[in-house]
Design a protein around this nucleic acid. Structure first.
Length: 503
RNA sequence: GCUCCCAUCGUCUAGCGGUUAGGACGUAGCCCUCUCAAGGCUAAAACACGGGUUCGAUUCCCGUUGGGAGCGCCA
């Protein structure tokens, strides 16, 4: 038996503090929360945050996190999306304790509940055609009224033999108020006269969303419904259903929406919105989670959290009420911060799949770790890290034409020619020895270090940007360095022609 | 249109009657420097507006404006 004596429905004048609802039953009930996506698309950013808040709350209270797939829309739900959502959840590390539970497996449960409502005259058959409803809606809108059903069938004398197609509607109370106690919004009051006799089952007998959520949440003994803001207007209708069943209402927490840069609800046209897209671009799951957690929730001035820290610190007291714009630049920064927490070896291991996509397979773990280490603070994502480190692993250099034009001109070639024998004779290949070599070279050629470093950099990496030149030199090793300089000279002659400098 | 929600720098936010309104991302400048980053320092940048309540409002109340969501035999 659950501890909350809270009942939905025609509650009047309840007062509460948004900080304390859980305490009423904390000793008696264990937290049971759920994430209930519908498989009509990939797991998206908004869904991921809802899932995260549920998960954090469950873990913090040593409760149960349930994954439920809302697949009652047979038209749009696909198995592919179901798998994609499950994969997304696993990648994020949001493990669930029960489920996935599929609503399509629960038809019998809904049927039983529907019959109960019918039997107790809390629901009725409605014979109105979709056409009539559509007409009602247009008329209402034109007249400046809220489009609601006119309840024509509500008081029809039941005729069991009537075989016309009909849907089942809820007989909602006409008066009174329904008060939602929300952990982030506080008290929200709705006049029941604003609410509708909502459809519980379609004429083909399948149940609808507002009905199944209630039945599911009740039968799964959900204690806290944590979901998007877009459901706040559904909540009073659902509470009326709880009341009709004489079930206690769970506690609610309605999270503000995640917005695009135009302040509209985040959608495809704002760029990548699916979680897998972020996986593919090389974001760390813990970084995405960290960013999402802080989008709408805060803990003083702290920006970077480990998962454990989030579990410990999370609280609805500090969940904001306003919609939040998704900011990709800040995500990048958070991702960089999390990349710093890995050792060179761990980071290299995570970059490997992205190198593999480019057909590059490092054969030496130690070499890979040192190569990645030299580039790690230059990349925002794992993919970017793989891309800028690729030159270490390629059999030959990929030339950046402007870089070649600028630095492998006649002067650059002369420097490379001059350094070749000097590098050959370097015995111990380390930064100190190389520094001495270049000092000697600078003195002999009377050039600045820049004029040595840049041609060399282009020769070794193909581009003008790279880690410190001594890092590249020592990581690559003498053999590769000399080989690449030789190749660079060949390429430079081709690019610039044999007749000396171009301009 | 109706109902509900929301409102602090460009963005995410701290603030829970008295603060030089704090932090972070981004931006600009400087330092570091072989390139690019990273890092360090500095700067510009906000309480939407109007009424109350109060000795005193960013903070509490009301309204205006502005934004968002919902109003399906979708979820």
């Amino acid at each position: 038996m659950r501890g909350t004596p809270r009942h939905a429905g025609i509650t009047l004048g309840q007062s509460s503090h948004r900080t304390s609802p859980i305490h009423t039953g904390a000793l008696l009930m264990t937290v049971r929360v759920r994430f209930a996506p519908s498989p009509t698309g990939h797991l998206h950013i908004g869904g991921a945050r809802t899932a995260l808040y549920n998960w954090l709350y469950a873990r913090q209270h040593h409760g149960t996190f349930i994954l439920r797939i809302e697949d009652t829309d047979r038209e749009r739900s696909t198995e592919e999306y179901t798998h994609s959502i499950l994969d997304g959840m696993r990648w994020l590390g949001l493990d669930w304790d029960e489920g996935p539970i599929y609503q399509t497996d629960r038809a019998q449960i809904y049927h039983t509940h529907l019959n109960q409502l019918l039997r107790e005259e809390n629901a009725y058959r409605c014979f109105c055609t979709p056409e009539r409803l559509e007409q009602l809606r247009t008329e209402a809108l034109a007249a400046g009224r809220k489009p609601t059903y006119d309840r024509r069938c509500r008081d029809l004398t039941p005729d069991a033999h009537d075989t016309r197609p009909c849907c089942i509607r809820f007989k909602a109370p006409l008066t009174g108020q329904t008060v939602v106690q929300d952990m982030v919004r506080g008290t929200v009051t709705f006049d029941n006269k604003e609410l509708d006799d909502l459809i519980l089952a379609r004429s083909d007998g399948t149940p609808t969303y507002n009905f199944v959520v209630v039945v599911d949440d009740v039968t799964m003994q959900i204690t806290h419904v944590i979901r998007g803001d877009d459901h706040l207007n559904n909540t009073p209708r659902q509470m009326l259903l709880y009341a009709a069943f004489n079930y206690p209402t769970p506690l609610f927490a309605h999270l503000p929406m995640i917005l695009g840069s135009d302040r509209k609800r985040l959608s495809k046209r704002h760029g990548a919105t699916s979680v897998i897209a972020y996986q593919q671009t090389g974001y760390l799951p813990q970084a995405l989670l960290n960013y999402l957690a802080r989008l709408g929730w805060s803990h003083g001035d702290q920006e970077i959290f480990t998962l454990e820290e989030m579990v410990r610190a999370f609280s609805f007291d500090h969940v904001g009420r306003a919609g939040a714009i998704f900011n990709p630049e800040k995500l990048d920064w958070v991702n960089m911060a999390h990349m710093k927490s890995f050792s060179d070896e761990e980071l290299a291991a995570r970059v490997e799949p992205f190198l593999a996509e480019m057909g590059l397979v490092p054969h030496d773990r130690d070499y890979a770790a040192r190569a990645i280490a030299s580039e790690r603070e230059r990349a925002k994502t794992l993919r970017e890290l793989a891309e800028i480190s690729a030159f270490y692993f390629r059999p030959s250099v990929v030339w950046d034409a402007p870089a070649v034009a600028k630095w492998l001109d006649a002067d650059g070639q002369r420097i490379l020619q001059a350094m070749t024998p000097m590098l050959h004779s370097v015995e111990t290949w380390n930064a100190d020895a190389l520094k001495e070599t270049f000092s000697a070279l600078q003195a002999r050629e009377n050039v600045k270090f820049l004029q040595v470093a840049q041609p060399l950099r282009v020769a070794l990496t193909g581009t003008t940007t790279s880690p410190g030149i001594y890092d590249v030199l020592t990581i690559m090793g003498k053999t590769t360095v000399l080989h690449r300089i030789e190749q660079a000279l060949v390429h430079a002659k081709k690019a610039h022609g044999y007749s000396g400098p171009v301009s």
